[in-house]
Simulated assay, not measured.
Amino acid sequence: MNIKSLLLGSAAALAVVSGAQAADAVVAAEPEPMEYVRVCDAYGTGFFYIPGTETCLKVGGLLRFEKNYAKADNSAAAYEWHTRARIQIEAKNDSEWGTVYSWIRLQGDSYNNTADGAAGGNQTRWWYYFGIGGLEFGRFDAPGTRFQGYGGRTDWGGYYGNDHDQQYVSYTFNYDNFSAFVAIENDLYNGGNYAPNSQVDLYEINSKGKTVAVYGVNGREYMPNVSAGVKGAFGDYEVGAFVGYDESIESFNVRKWVRGDIGMFGFTLMGLYSDDARNEYFNYDGFSGILGLSAKVTDTVTVAKDIQWWDDDSWRVIGNVNWEVASGFSVLLEASYGDGKQVGDKVKTGMLRFQRSF
C-alpha cells in the first residue's frame, strides 16, 4: 500500500466517524423571547399592562392604626383601638364604546380585639364597580356622594348623607369642563324595607304635615331610589348641585356646593336640605351647611377645618393636621367638639392615625 492510498483511506474513515457524531449532536433551542411588564401611562400613574393583553392593571391599598377618643357631657369617656387593612385592584382597557373598567376593594377592620361577627367587632367587606364609557354598575358609596367629592376638608368631612354602600346603576356624561350623572339605587336593607305581602300600605304624618309611607315597612319592591347631579369646573373653582329622591318615604334631598383650590389654600362650601329625617340621602328634616378650609403649610404638612351647622342650632367643628412623613407613610391628628340634638351633648372626640399607603 503506497502513501497516497493510506491517506485516502484515513480521510474516508474520519468522514464516516464525523458524520456519526454529527447525527448524535444536541442542538440547543433558541430562547423564547421574554415579555417584560410594560408601564401603562394611559390612565395615570401606577398602571401596567397585563402581559399578553392590552388591559392595564393597578394594585394599591393601605394599612392603618388608629387610637380614638370620645366623650359626651355627663357620660364616661370611650377609648378605642382600630386597625384596618385594605387592598384594591383596578383594571382598564380601551374600546370603541369608551374605556372598559373595573374596581374591587377588600377591606378588613378590627375594633378593640372584638371577636369576628360581634357587634362593633371585626369586619371584612367587599366593594366593587365596573362599567364601559359612562355606564356603571356596582356596590359602593352612592354615585352622588362620589360625584360631589364627599364632604368638607377633614377626614370626617361633615355629616352629609347616609347613602354609602349601595347597589346602583349610573350613567355619567362628561363634556369639556362640565359633567352630569343620573343613577338608580337599590333602597332595600338586608333584603327588605317594604311589606311585599301586605295589601294595606302603612302611612304616617311627618313633621311637615305630609302623609308618607312608613320607612322600613312600606316602600315598593320594584321602585329604586333616584339621584342626579351636575357640576362644572371654572379655573380653580368647582360648582355643583345634586338631588336625591327616596321613594320609600317620598322625600327629596338637595345639595349644592362650591369648592376651590387656590395655591396653598382650599375651601368647600356645601348646603344641604331634606324634607324628612329618615331620608336615606340625608337623615335630617331641614337645612344644614358645611364650611371646610385647608392650607398646605409646607410640602409635607396640611391643616384643615370643617364647621357644620343645622337649623335646629346643632353644630360641630373639627380640625386636623396631616403630616406626610415619607412617600407612602403619614400621620394624622384630628379632634372635634360639638353640641346639639344632631351631635350629642357637648361631645368631644380625638383621633391619632398612622397610615401606610401604596
Rank of each mutant, 00 (worst) to 15 (best):
T99S: 00
Y175R: 12
L293A: 06
F265M: 10
I205Q: 09
V16C: 05
A295G: 10
E30T: 15
A91N: 04
G191E: 00
K296R: 07
V17W: 04
Y189A: 15
G144K: 03
N93T: 13
A304L: 05
N113R: 12
K346A: 08
S274E: 05
G19L: 03
S75Y: 08
T55V: 10
L8S: 13
L7F: 09
G120R: 13
K71S: 02
Y150S: 03
D165P: 06
M351V: 02
T99V: 15
H164K: 09
Y168D: 00
G344P: 06
A335G: 13
R84L: 12
F130N: 06
A195M: 12
N190W: 10
D141G: 09
Y171S: 01
G157C: 02
M34H: 13
A25Y: 02
M34A: 15
V217C: 13
V169D: 05
E66G: 04
W81F: 10
P51W: 07
F140N: 02
I132C: 07
T124Q: 08
R153H: 02
N186T: 11
V243I: 14
D306V: 09
E334R: 04
G120W: 00
W323S: 12
E247V: 07
Q355K: 14
G138V: 00
F329W: 10
G151R: 01
G117M: 09
R220I: 14
A28Y: 13
V214C: 08
W103C: 02
S198H: 12
H82M: 12
F130E: 01
R153Y: 01
G219Y: 03
G229T: 07
G117K: 08
T45N: 15
V303C: 11
A213M: 11
P224C: 02
N122R: 07
N218P: 04
R139P: 02
T53I: 13
Y79I: 06
F178K: 12
S357E: 10
A12D: 01
A11Y: 05
V317H: 06
A118W: 13
W126H: 08
G191Q: 05
S170N: 05
A29M: 11
S330C: 05
Q123D: 11
D306Y: 08
A13Q: 09
D141P: 00
S18D: 08
V100H: 03
K341F: 14
S102W: 04
G9V: 12
V59S: 10
D313F: 14
S357Q: 13
G244F: 11
F358A: 09
D165H: 13
G161P: 07
L291G: 01
L202Y: 12
R105T: 09
N218Q: 14
G46N: 06
K231V: 03
G19P: 00
S294I: 02
N177Y: 11
R125Q: 14
M270F: 01
Y245S: 10
A12F: 09
G152R: 01
P224I: 04
P51F: 05
Y171R: 05
W97Q: 05
A326R: 00
D345M: 12
R353F: 01
Q355F: 07
D176M: 12
D187F: 05
Y49C: 04
G152N: 06
A76T: 13
F267S: 08
A70T: 06
R316G: 02
F181M: 13
G319M: 00
